[in-house]
């Protein structure tokens, strides 16, 4: 009896990842059920209702995040930097150059260091003509919507300065796989759920809803390429007197020293008068 051919070794099917949204510390699909394909991967296509849910999550997380000590927020950002270091291989597989991953980690550590120093630099004691102590202190604006530029370094360079001072953010990401991988880093870095919310998809569809949203306090347009759309979003933001960071104002070369502008863009100055005793 002839020997029967041995059954072919079953080929293993690889498990492909769907890149999902990051809202309130969880990774939901879009409520609309929509996806689109980016470089062969399925990516959730965020809708206006996902943006609405993200704002709710950001708003819910904001008081506690702003109330945490500056030192604590710095530690959390430092932790994010550590976790990016651990995911270096994953970022390079996605096409992020090794030098950019280095720069991203350095940028995170740089902002982590600013957490308990920005108040001294952006605030201070004011000399006044009267028997008062007069103190100005920077406070976070609240919920900031960000249209992020592409590249990992660009993304971190707009998110870190907003959150380090106590804002919470809703980010419309340009580079979905990189952004969602960063979200996975954030989810495992002691960043409280809702502090950073990341939506993938077409920002031209979702950004107008965030620009006009009455519960969003700031709008960072760094990633908007079309001047016309940026102007339109700024007009919509004016309806609720949002702080707006125009494209280019936060810097376009992300490898350069960012300066304080990205942080101060979403800070409010509170000034307190206190009577001086004798």
């Amino acid at each position: 009896m002839p020997k029967t051919a041995k059954a072919a070794e079953p080929t293993r099917l690889s498990v492909r990842k769907t890149y999902k949204l990051y809202i309130g510390g969880a990774f939901p699909r879009s409520e609309s059920g929509r996806t689109y394909v980016v470089n062969g991967d399925n990516v959730a296509l965020a809708s206006r209702k996902d943006a609405r849910d993200a704002v709710l999550a950001a708003r819910a997380a904001q008081p506690k995040w702003a109330g945490a000590t500056a030192y604590n927020r710095g530690q959390v950002l430092y932790r994010v930097a550590e976790m990016v270091e651990g995911r270096r291989a994953e970022f390079t597989t996605l096409g992020v150059p090794a030098a950019e991953v280095d720069a991203t980690i350095d940028r995170l550590v740089w902002y982590a260091g600013w957490s308990d120093k920005i108040a001294q630099v952006a605030g201070g004691a004011n000399p006044v003509a009267g028997p008062f102590f007069n103190i100005s202190a920077p406070e976070p604006t609240g919920v900031v919507a960000i249209v992020a530029p592409p590249s990992l370094l660009g993304l971190v360079s707009v998110v870190a300065p907003a959150v380090v001072t106590g804002n919470t953010v809703v980010v419309l990401a340009a580079d979905p796989q990189v952004a969602v991988t960063l979200a996975e880093v954030l989810a495992t870095s002691d960043v409280p759920g809702g502090v950073v919310n990341i939506l993938t998809g077409r920002y031209a569809e979702t950004a107008p809803w965030l620009a006009s949203h009455a519960d969003v306090n700031g709008l960072d347009l760094t990633g908007v390429e079309h001047a016309e759309l940026a102007a339109e979003l700024e007009r919509a933001a004016a309806g609720t007197l949002k702080r707006v960071l125009r494209p280019g104002l936060g810097g376009t070369d992300f490898t350069a020293d960012p300066g304080l502008r990205p942080m101060t863009a979403f800070l409010e100055t509170k000034t307190v008068w206190h009577p001086k005793g004798h």
Partner: peptide, 14 residues
């Protein structure tokens, strides 16, 4: 109600 009349999302601050 405000969302329906104004066309944009409302916030609790208002």
């Amino acid at each position: 109600r405000t969302k329906l009349t104004t066309g944009h999302y409302a916030g609790p601050d208002y």
